[in-house]
């Protein structure tokens, strides 16, 4: 079988090429690498939220700060404003927030791509958010839905709890590690999609949701 030959030949070539430079115990050598960059941010919680909001606004994201008790009405308002009548509500999306979807037609997140394409919006929670980069991370956990759900409809309304906002990237990767190790797909979203491919003119919204809304819950 030529596949096995290729594998053996490549590994042999690599072994020969790395003769004299490779480590006897790669895991130990890797663990010994120094990481002199910031592992945690220095900002306090309030400054962190401010920065996160600033970054989102910079990306053209609509952000509102609110209390948990106001989320349902805010969802209703936003969906109404965008005339969304068909809404994807992922499994495990908090009941108290889901009330805001009201009598609108609901779609589960396991709908087919074609069905999702006919939906107007998706509501979701997130796993963690990064202030410095204005990033929201989804890890397919409860309320976040399958990947296609937050991708195909044109509006993505994401609930972020203040306690989920970390300052810098390494804090987020640390929080996501258990999900990664469990094989969960991870998606990082930093503003709506964008392209500058035509004469370097920035166009917001190409293939993902062209509208990204963030409800930042300050008391959760």
């Amino acid at each position: 079988m030529s596949g096995k030959d290729a594998r053996r030949a490549m590994l042999d070539a690599i072994q020969a090429a790395t003769e004299g430079v490779r480590d006897d115990d790669p895991a130990a050598a890797h663990a010994a690498l120094t990481r002199p960059y910031r592992q945690v941010g220095e900002r306090d919680a309030a400054a962190r939220l401010d920065l996160f909001e600033e970054r989102l606004v910079d990306y053209g994201v609509d952000v509102s700060r609110l209390h948990a008790s106001d989320v349902a009405s805010a969802i209703d308002e936003e969906l109404a404003r965008r005339r969304a009548s068909k809404v994807v509500v992922p499994l495990g999306f908090p009941e108290a927030y889901g009330v805001g979807v009201g009598a609108r037609e609901r779609l589960a997140d396991d709908a087919s791509p074609r069905e999702l394409d006919a939906a107007d919006a998706t509501v979701s929670t997130c796993a963690v958010a990064i202030a410095e980069t204005g990033t929201i991370a989804l890890d397919a956990g409860a309320g976040q839905g399958r990947r296609a759900a937050s991708l195909v409809p044109d509006v993505h309304l994401c609930i972020v709890h203040a306690s989920q906002v970390v300052a810098v990237v390494p804090e987020a990767t640390a929080r996501l590690e258990p999900a990664v190790k469990a094989g969960a797909p991870i998606t990082w979203i930093s503003g709506p999609s964008a392209t500058s491919d035509i004469e370097l003119v920035r166009v917001a919204g190409v293939h993902g949701p062209r509208t990204l809304l963030v409800l930042l819950v300050t008391d959760a």
């Binding site: 970054r55 410095e132 397919a140 990664v180 990082w188 979203i189 964008a194």
Partner: peptide
């Protein structure tokens, strides 16, 4: 020259019912 690019996807093998 962005603080973060809009989308980053990570996947691990096959996830039942997703992708």
């Amino acid at each position: 020259a962005e603080r973060m690019n809009p989308y980053t996807s990570f996947w691990t093998g096959v996830r039942e019912g997703d992708g």
